[in-house]
Design a protein around this nucleic acid. Structure first.
Ligand SMILES: [Mn+2]
Ligand SMILES: [Mn+2]
Ligand SMILES: [Zn+2]
Ligand SMILES: [Zn+2]
Lengths: 148, 148
DNA sequence: TATTATATTATAATCTTTACAAATAGTGTA
DNA sequence: TACACTATTTGTAAAGATTATAATATAATA
């Protein structure tokens, strides 16, 4: 039994336990998110599934991504002007983003409890979480810019 | 001579040095940004100045905020779906954001060189910078939720 | 299989931001 | 100060992402 299959089954169980109906569209969106390594946009997902679901509405993709986010199955990654990207939740991790090609790569780091504590101490906020991203140039874009 | 006046004069010098013309609209937008503690949106600025400039176009606000960003006078803070917020650049700092009322508060922290280095090491990226925000509930919102 | 609430679809609307072209106004120079 | 040159402003339209709405279809349960 593959990891992907496990993730999908657990996700479907979560939906069932939360009283969220399992539709073919939801099944397909989840399946696509789990196997995807690219942190796709809603439109990426819509386009990827239009072969299998020629009549699916783009609103269905947005609606279901919101449902998945609300039950904790996916995380929404928001950046300024461009569209949101979606990440199936497995383990906690941060992202490194290429400023040339837009690629988003996972990377793991122990967490930043110290920063949260200091922020709480100096501002009086009750801290719930933080976000952090590292920006730069990916190896592919770096080598394609070198002289040949 | 006040800090605000200093900041404004330096900003105007920067514009002059870069060949950017100083217009009444630009002067007013800068002045507003410097005295503002609230990290306003483009529309906040537009509304705040419509008394003084009844004919100013909202496009002028956006255009000038982009100019200011390009010459390094302001930073654009981008969050998911809502509109960008703008911060007059003084010293480097991070932000704590209240999830109840949306307030954005400055806070200083030494920086996260270690995280950047690890990210670079494990992903092969050439790292240029990072962003980080802490989320939580501000003291005002916390106390207004308590029983009386 | 019948029932019923939930989900999907198609489309319109909303919201932020940008594009465009014509009118206006800063800035350096005479 | 007046001129000329070009950047800037203005008004409006357009773009792009996301949400709202209402009619239709369907998943879940008995
Ligand atoms: Mn990820
Ligand atoms: Mn700030
Ligand atoms: Zn790249
Ligand atoms: Zn608050």
């Amino acid at each position: 039994m593959s990891h992907e299959h496990n993730h999908l089954q657990e996700a479907l169980d979560t939906l069932k336990a939360t009283g969220v109906r399992i539709t073919p569209q939801r099944h397909a969106i989840l399946e696509f998110l789990i196997q995807s390594m690219t942190h796709p946009t809603a439109d990426d997902i819509y386009k990827a599934l239009e072969g299998k679901f020629p009549n699916m509405s783009v609103a269905t993709v947005y609606n279901n991504l919101r449902v998945f986010r609300e039950v904790g199955l996916v995380k929404e990654l928001t950046y300024g002007d461009a569209s949101s990207r979606f990440d199936f939740v497995t383990t906690d991790h941060y992202h490194v983003i290429c400023e040339e090609c837009g690629k988003i790569v996972d990377f793991h780091y122990p967490g930043l409890d110290e920063v949260e504590q200091l922020a709480s101490h100096v501002t009086g906020f009750k801290v719930s979480h933080h976000r952090m991203e590292v920006y730069g140039t990916c190896p592919e874009c770096t080598s394609s810019k070198e002289v040949h």
